[in-house]
Each structure stands twice: as C-alpha cells, then as structure tokens.
Design a protein around this nucleic acid. Structure first.
Lengths: 190, 190
DNA sequence: CGTTAGATTGAGGGGATTCAAAATTGGTGG
DNA sequence: CCACCAATTTTGAATCCCCTCAATCTAACG
C-alpha cells in the first residue's frame, strides 16, 4: 500500500482485510510493528512528509483513502474529532508498549501464546468467529511480528499443541482448547 | 511517580531529570518502554481511569503535574493544543515502532550501539554536552530498556570498546570515538 | 578501612537461529 | 480424480548467542 520513505499523500481507513505496518533494515530483516484490521487506520505516521513505516496488505484489502493535508485542516475545526484522534493514537501507543514488553521479556512460546490470545480478543471484539480460529497470516509474518524465525514459531505451535492448549486443523486454522492456560503462558494481564 | 494500575489523577511534564516509563510482569521481569527527558510528558496513558504504565524517576526529577480531567476539557477548546497533542503522540508512536525493530531484529551489541546513537542524538537536540557522554542510568536500566541482561550490556560495551568505537571514562561516562561506525553498527537509518 | 551497590569477567548451559531435508498444503492441468 | 509442482510448514542436527550463576573488581560513602 505504501513504502517507508515514500512521499505521503493520504492515509487509509481499512474497511476489509488485514494490513501489516512494518519497517525493514537494509540487510532485509523486517519487523512488523502492528497488525491492523477493519476500522483501523494505517499510513498516518510521517517524518517530514514521508511515510514513517511500510504498509502491506496481508489479505485482500479494501480501504478508504483520506488526503492527509485536508484531514488535518478538517480536524482543526472539529474538536471532537481531534479528541477521537488522540484516543486512537493513545490506544496504539499502549499497544506498542505492550508489544515491547512481549518482545523484550517473553520467550518464544510465551510470545506465540500471547499473540494467539491477542488475536482471539481482537476477533471476539469484532464478532469474527474464533472457533476455529483462522489466522490469515503466515508463519513468516508471525515471526516478523514477534521477532522470531519461522522455524521457532512452528516449534512453539508444536509445544502448545503437545501441551493440549491448542489443536491444529490446518496450519492456518486452529482451535483453542484451553483459553485460560493460553493467556497464562502468554502472560496476558488479568 | 506512579504505578501501573493506580487510579490516575494527573500527568506530568518533566522539567528536570530522566523518567523511565515501564511495565512489569508478575514474575518481576521489567520492560522499560520509553525514556523521557525534560520537556516530555509522562503518565498520560490510561486504561479506564488507571495508569497504563509505571513511571519511575531514574535521577532527581522535577515535574509539573496537570489534572488530566481539566486538561482534556481545556484541549477541547484549543484546537492548536489538540494538534500539538496529536503530534506528540505521533512522535512517541514512531519512537516505539523503532524500538520494536531494535528489540525484534538487532543483536545485543547492535542494540547497545543503537541505544548510544539515540542518546547522543537526543542530547544534541537538547544542547546537553555529549563529550564525554554521561548516561545517568545504570546497566540494569539499559538492559531493561533493550531486553537484555546487565551482563550482556556490559559485554556489549566491552566489544564496542575493543573495536575502538567508544572509550569508557567511568562506567557511567563514555566518549564516542567513531560516531559513524556506531550508527552503522546500531543500524540507525540514514 | 570496611561496607555496599554497581560493573566486569569467566565458565557453563540453554534457547533461538541457521542450514538442510522431509512433509504438508494448495493450485493447475491432464 | 489424480498427478505434478511450487510454496509453506514441519522436523532434525549443529552452531551461536545470550542467559544464568558465580567470583572478582571498582567506586562511593560512612
């Protein structure tokens, strides 16, 4: 959808599909910074007129494009929209803070468990079926999101499966057998 | 200054000193999510009335407290302040995104090099002397910020020293010998 | 001078990565 | 429907990096 460093025209509100917001190093290492679903906006962050991150459609995606310049002007005259914007940004900030905790402190299987718990919570909240849970993203993308390799992600799935916490239908579709245990392993607060 | 989960009254604008914004797991593992310096605000993020993170003074700190409730009302009537708030949040979001890249993809020495480069940039921008560079924070805090142990941080300093990229005066005070090289190792963009 | 907190250094073990191969999945055309 | 192929996932073995545990060192302070 857009590349880091490209001149920014507009940002997008997703109406359908999943988008990965990421950043890539020159040697190819990639970090997915956030996963965005319908209702979320992507491509808002900029550094002097250029996109600060890369936006990549992981599935087929529909989105509305908004001209950033015009939007800024519009917000200026609508205090309640400005408040909503601040709320959205605050939420994103809390989320990335949580992600830092996950990546900095959790071991591989804990990270995967945490990821699955988060996905379930996200899907529930949006009334997307979670039984079975269809991920829509590859091991490689999970790895780039959690700071792990595909092999390690795969092995972590294996461990959770062996402990009877989850069951695999296909590689992309799983069933959560023990929701509580999954949250515990993933150190999900409360 | 404030604990995660405490009922939130006010947030703080730092006038002097350094504050760590962090989150801690039940088993004691801690992740520092951001380091804040004079001019920055901390304690703004909340989840239904409670602080979302913990705020810890790493040095002696002076700060102004602002009542969050009153602030929100005030912002509502000052569009330019709302814009400034959005800018601040956007900046923080870019920063944590970058931090996710660092923690997810970089090796220990790369992380430490990145950290030092960032600190130098931050200090320069605020006209704080960088030669020698005084860190004001312990190895333990650097470790919790980068997702590493104190020993690994110490060894990374050692490696950078042996490669003549930095020189240690005291443990808290260093001299950057090769600024460019440090940025390269730390994969600092551009 | 002894104490204490923080930093460094060393040895050993463990978890994640790397490299490689096998297995599974999904799509295509015969 | 099945054979075939490419892409993805899983599994295995070896390696490496970081962590853990422990000892030593340094600096600040009473």
């Amino acid at each position: 959808m857009f590349r880091e460093g490209d001149s920014m025209g507009s940002f997008f509100k997703i109406t359908q599909g999943i988008v990965a917001v990421s950043r890539t190093l020159e040697d190819g290492r990639r970090q997915i910074v956030a996963l965005r679903a319908p209702g979320d906006c992507v491509g808002y962050l900029e550094t002097d007129g250029n996109y600060a991150f890369q936006g990549e459609a992981l599935t087929d995606v529909e989105a509305c494009a908004f001209d950033r310049r015009k939007f800024d002007v519009f917000v200026q005259h609508h205090p309640d929209l400005a408040a909503a914007l601040a709320d959205t940004l605050s939420g994103a900030l809390k989320q990335t803070g949580q992600n830092m905790l996950v990546m900095g402190q959790l071991k591989s299987t804990e990270r995967v468990a945490n990821f699955l718990s988060e996905i379930v919570a996200l899907y529930r909240q949006r009334r997307v079926p979670t039984r079975p849970l269809t991920l829509h993203i590859t091991r490689s993308e999970i790895g780039d999101y959690l700071g792990l390799t595909i092999e390690t992600v795969s092995r972590s799935f294996g461990k959770l499966k062996k402990r009877n916490v989850i069951a695999l239908i296909e590689s992309d579709s799983i069933i959560i057998l023990d929701d509580k245990r999954l949250a515990e392993i993933g150190k999900v607060a409360r």
